[in-house]
Structure formats: C-alpha cells, structure tokens
C-alpha cells in the first residue's frame, strides 16, 4: 500500500512525505491524463490509435498503430473492444486530451497517452514505421486471465464433447426459468455453492458460468479454495461468440 511505503520512507529519514490515497483511478476519472510506458506502447497487448489527420501516418507512425483521425473517433468507437487497453497519440495535445476524455466517458477502462505525443515518441528514440497503410482494421484479442476458460473449450463442454467436465450455471433458478439453461449443465446458484459442495464432483474439471462472468468469478474463487480443478467463463452469455445450445424453458 502507498501508506506502508510512506511509513517506510518516513523511517528512512524522508521529511516531506505525502500520500495520494485516492490514487490513479481518481486522477484519471477527473479527466487528467495518464501515460503509457515506452515498452508497453511497443509490445503491450493494446489498441494503439494514431489520431492524426490525412497522410501524416504514412510519413511516419508508431508501429502497430491504427489511424483514426480525431473527427472519426466517435464513429469508430464501437469497433474498439471496451476491455482493450487503449493508447492514443496525436500531434496536437488538445485533440489527444479530448480523445482521452471521450473514451473515458464512453466507458473504456484503460486509456493512456504517449508521452509528448508523436513528437515525444520520435525524440525519445522510439521506432517508427513509414509507407503506405494497407489496413485500418482493429485486431485485438484478449488474453485469457487467471482461471478463465476459453469460449471454444467451454462450448465443447456444454456440447458434451469434453469428457470429465462438470459445467455449473451459477445464476438463480428464476433466471434459468426465464432464459433457459445450456445443455450438459447443472444449476447451482452462487450463494448456494458453499453448502452444495457435495454435489460438485472432485474428480472432474469444473467450468462455471453466469450471465456476465462476475458471479462465475466469485464461484471460481470459492471452489479453488476447496481444491477444485476449476475455470470460469468471463463472457456475457448473450454474446454471439458463445452460441451454445440452450434448453429453453417450457
């Protein structure tokens, strides 16, 4: 914690120590910019957006960037995955700042700027790419986090094509009554998991889902604590990507 750091610094003889308790989230929520590190701009799993106009990127751009002129940003916002870390640069600090604020307001969680914009990147010795641009398509694929099952593997399980797998739907019985349940799936609502642990086989691999992944994540933690081999699906199950067979309510 920043407070324990501050305490340590105080002990080391620093006389003028303060703590910004609200931290980075409070800073960026105010619309104040944050900056991505150079290595992250070069190699991170990000969507890198060049906000400059016309043929500026043809003359020189940061590798892997996609050109979206600030005036087109609003239109293209839906092409950018909401959970992708986004890094922006321009040659105009005002536009970069406006784009940063627009994206924060749109609900993008991780948005950052390149220090000093394009000029700053060049001055810092960052690599550039020149020449024609063949595609402005955003190709970003989320990497699975700890404990997550891929949609493909999950789908296999509910299709019955993955032996020794037990799939749990952690939604409430009311939700299932209304919306149906995936095939090869047992319903154990999140809040009942601790007391219904005996219904969950120890010798099988467990997959858990709910409606968005939030409850499945919590159920995952509950089961991992009890030594289960378990993964959860972090996906809104109405997402077309899932496309799993559903047993509809009668």
């Amino acid at each position: 914690m920043s407070t324990s750091n501050a305490g340590l610094a105080k002990k080391l003889g620093y006389t003028n120590v303060r703590v910004f308790l609200a931290g980075e989230p409070a800073w960026s929520e105010e619309g104040y910019p944050v900056y991505a590190s150079k290595g992250f701009v070069e190699k991170g799993n990000i969507v890198l957006i060049d906000l400059r106009k016309g043929d500026a990127p043809v003359k020189g751009r940061i590798p892997r960037s996609v050109q979206i002129h600030y005036e087109q940003l609003e239109e293209r916002m839906d092409d950018i995955p909401r959970n992708a870390p986004v890094v922006l640069y321009s040659d105009n600090m005002g536009e970069a700042q406006d784009a940063y604020e627009d994206m924060k307001e749109e609900g993008f969680k991780t948005v950052a700027l390149v220090k000093g914009n394009y000029q700053g990147w060049v001055e810092s010795g960052g690599a550039i790419e020149t020449g024609p641009i063949y595609s402005n398509e955003i190709k970003w694929v989320r990497k699975l986090g700890k404990g997550e099952v891929s949609v493909a593997e999950f789908k296999k399980a509910v299709m019955g094509d993955l032996p020794d797998t037990f799939v749990i739907d952690a939604r409430t019985p009311e939700e299932i009554k209304e919306l149906g349940i995936f095939t090869n799936t047992a319903n154990i609502p999140l809040d009942e998991i601790p007391k219904r642990m005996n219904e969950i086989p120890k010798d099988k691999r467990i997959f858990i889902h709910c409606s968005t992944g939030a409850r499945a994540d919590l159920a995952y933690r509950e089961l991992i604590k009890n030594d289960y081999d378990v993964k959860f699906l972090l996906l809104n199950i109405s997402d077309p990507e899932c496309d799993c067979p559903i047993i509809m309510p009668e």
Partner: peptide
C-alpha cells in the same frame, strides 16, 4: 528513493477500483 531527503515525496497506488 531520491537522495535529497527533504524534497517532497508523494506516493500513490490503485485507489479504489
């Protein structure tokens, strides 16, 4: 940490999200 122990030193972290 900086050499000058009297210079303002501010720590922050991940706040509340």
């Amino acid at each position: 940490l900086p050499e000058d122990k009297d210079k303002l030193l501010i720590f922050y972290c991940g706040g509340y999200t």
